[in-house]
Design a protein around this nucleic acid. Structure first.
Length: 358
DNA sequence: GATACGTGGAC
DNA sequence: TGTCCAAGTAT
């Protein structure tokens, strides 16, 4: 493997840049956020695209831009409407941080997305990648935008054997990109690297024979594309057994509760839910309903269960239901009509809970 | 620097 | 079913 200090010394930078830029010009996908250089549009797309596939993002992006077409509109929108537009995309702090950052742009930068990388990077939810992506794509500033694609492409091209999960590796690759992009269009160069990673230099079965830069690729020349990039294996997710309850009162209303404003699914509404050992689910939910929502009734187990898989844990959700007397005394919940409860209860798992208890 | 933070799709 | 992933950030 090549070391950080010397890996660009004998690398044909000019040839690599010329070829990848030419390839990008010819092969770039027409994407909704490539229609113009509106920094706000590009910013929104970059946030949505974090850890999320292009095909997943497309419909969300169109809908989001229709509802919140400018920083001013997003800044003034109800947070609940913003979250609703994000529902299903995951990583919900992205939406809250984006709205918070846009408010700062409107109130402190006159509604103009800062052209200073340092100013832009100070906004909530804007990390090293998003800073480089928006500054380069929207303003053509010479900033690297190193995402998973770029890490993979350069790990192979430059034969980098370091774990790409490490922050230090990413910082070194950022320096590599800074050196490579001199004299190019940063907007096109960054996107060319990412597009090549997405379409040709894929994680599995890269299409090396079709690659425009295979003659400069050190991994390809050595038959090592399959060993790169190096990435530490993920730990297995922890399993949690959960009880969830759909409770209808005599008025036909459904009980929903709000999660804490920090942590997993922060601030989101859900049907009452508790963690417990598998044998004690029924008892745990009964006690929880009594203590938290002052609902003291006989619970019915539905025999319905399903997994909700997160990146770091798995909920084994068991669905209960019951009918309660009408009242409103709850600690962190409220009774809503079925329609409103179903709308408010967030996250994919709660749509499933609703369907399964019917 | 390791861990928390969602989801759906590919194989 | 399991595993890995997809244009990362905050703490």
């Amino acid at each position: 493997m090549t070391s950080y200090s010397n890996r660009l010394e004998t690398f044909p930078i000019g040839e690599f840049c010329r070829k990848i830029l030419k390839w990008y010009e010819k092969n770039k996908r027409p994407l909704p956020w490539r229609e113009n250089k509106d920094p706000y549009r590009i910013w929104v797309s970059e946030i949505m695209l974090q850890q999320t596939k292009v095909d997943t993002v497309k419909p969300y992006f169109e809908n989001f831009m229709n509802k919140f077409p400018t920083p001013e509109v997003l800044a003034e929108a109800e947070e609940e409407q913003v979250m609703k537009a994000w529902e299903g995309l995951g990583y919900y702090s992205r939406a809250r941080n984006l709205q918070s950052a846009v408010k700062e742009v409107v109130h402190h930068y006159g509604g103009e997305i800062p052209k200073s990388p340092e100013d832009f990077a100070s906004l909530k939810g804007v990390g090293p990648y998003t800073k480089g992506a928006v500054m380069s794509i929207a303003y053509d500033l010479e900033e690297p935008a190193v995402d998973g694609n770029v890490m993979r492409v350069l790990a192979r091209v430059l034969l980098i054997g370091d774990d790409i999960g490490k922050q230090r590796t990413r910082k070194q690759v950022e320096q590599d990109v800074r050196a490579l992009m001199v004299g190019t269009s940063p907007a096109d160069f960054n996107q060319a690297l990412m597009e090549l990673g997405a379409l040709v230099c894929t994680p599995k079965n890269p299409d090396c024979t079709a690659c425009p830069v295979n003659n400069t690729c050190r991994a390809y020349q050595r038959g090592m594309t399959r060993e790169l990039p190096v990435k530490a294996k993920k730990k297995k997710q922890q399993r949690q057994t959960m009880a969830a309850a759909v409770i209808e009162n005599k008025n036909g209303e459904i009980l929903v509760e709000q999660r804490p404003d920090k942590g997993l699914l922060a601030g989101m509404w859900q049907f009452p839910m508790v963690e417990a050992s598998p044998a004690l689910l029924h008892e745990a939910m009964s006690n929880y309903l009594k203590e938290t929502h002052h609902v003291d009734v006989v619970l019915e187990a539905t025999e319905q269960r399903f997994d909700h898989v997160f990146s770091h844990l798995i909920w084994d959700i068991h669905v209960f239901r019951t009918t309660a007397h009408a009242h409103t005394l709850t600690l962190n919940g409220k009774w809503l009509t079925k329609t409103k409860a179903k709308q408010l209860a967030f996250s994919v798992s709660h749509q499933k809970i609703w369907e399964q208890q019917l």
